Simulated scan of single mutants.
Amino acid sequence: MVTILVTEDDAHIRRLLREHLVMEGYHVLESKDGDDALQVMERHHIDLLITDVMMPSMDGLELTRDLREAGYEFPILMITALETLDDKKRGFSSGGDDYMVKPVDMEEMLLRVAALLRRAKIASSNVLEIGNSVLNQEQLTISTGDTVVELPTKEFRLLHKLLSHPRKIFTRQQLMDEIWGYDVQSIDRTVDVHIKRLREKLSEIKDFEIITVRGLGYKAEKRGLS
């Protein structure tokens, strides 16, 4: 099931969006502003963000910029009462993928959400296959044959990030920004500790390996590749 986060300070609009999305079969999370959204994303994987632009605390433009700078790539649909061309330019320039003006036509919103997910190639099953191994984002598990390993959220997100881009090198800072970017208590050593735990837990899975690239960071490769 695709998970969508609705970030909107107006509780009535937030409820309407949620109701229509749920009726369409999506799993919906809610937040009242940008700061609240970041806390939700610390605990949950999301596939698409719908965000209002004008909100107290952290607004939608700042939220979108921060997410893009941290490496988050999921689609972002911006919703706002601002409708000038300059307003739309600011929305797209901040990293938004689509833009709707209030009052929102719910049927059109659902069409836009489906199109964004289709373009992002988000599968409703939320699974990633590497050889005989399958990562399930809903269950936070990796399985191969009869072996199923359940992982804590951050370990799963770290593994999923590496396996989603085989052979791509990620620096520790890149991984920190995406997985722990808004946890001020985190330190660089955190990445190394989580990689060590993953290697220990997945030692019996032979479809891939997590490789340390000295002086740079980490990458994942299918077994047998050089």
Rank of each mutant, 00 (worst) to 15 (best):
L175C: 10
D183C: 07
Y182E: 10
K161E: 15
R223N: 08
L202T: 04
M176K: 10
R172S: 14
L175S: 06
S164G: 15
G217P: 05
Q185K: 13
D183R: 14
L198G: 05
E204A: 11
D207A: 06
I211L: 12
I169F: 00
K168S: 06
T153Q: 13
D183M: 07
I205E: 04
D192Y: 04
I205P: 00
L162D: 12
E221R: 10
T153W: 03
R167W: 08
P166W: 05
E155Q: 15
R199P: 00
Q174S: 11
R189K: 10
R223P: 00
E209K: 10
Y182T: 13
Q174H: 04
L198Y: 01
E204W: 01
G224L: 01
I210G: 08
R199E: 13
D188I: 03
A220K: 00
V193L: 14
R172H: 12
I210S: 03
S203L: 05
E204M: 04
G181M: 09
D183P: 03
Q174I: 03
L225S: 15
K222M: 08
V193C: 01
R167A: 14
D207R: 00
T153M: 13
L225H: 12
P166K: 03
F170M: 10
D177L: 14
M176H: 10
R189N: 11
Y182I: 09
E204S: 13
E200D: 12
L198I: 02
D192S: 14
S186N: 03
L175A: 12
I169V: 15
E155C: 09
T190F: 03
R199S: 03
K196N: 11
Q173L: 14
L159D: 11
D207W: 03
R157G: 07
K219A: 05
Y218P: 09
S203C: 00
E221L: 07
L163P: 10
T190E: 14
H194R: 09
K206Q: 13
V213E: 12
L163A: 06
F170Q: 08
R167Y: 08
K222Q: 14
T190H: 06
A220P: 09
V184I: 08
L159G: 11
K219E: 05
E204T: 11
Q174Y: 02
M176G: 08
L159V: 05
T190S: 09
L158D: 08
R214K: 10
L163W: 10
D177H: 07
R199Q: 12
L216R: 15
I187W: 00
G181V: 11
W180I: 00
R172Q: 07
I211R: 04
L163Q: 11
I195H: 01
D177M: 13
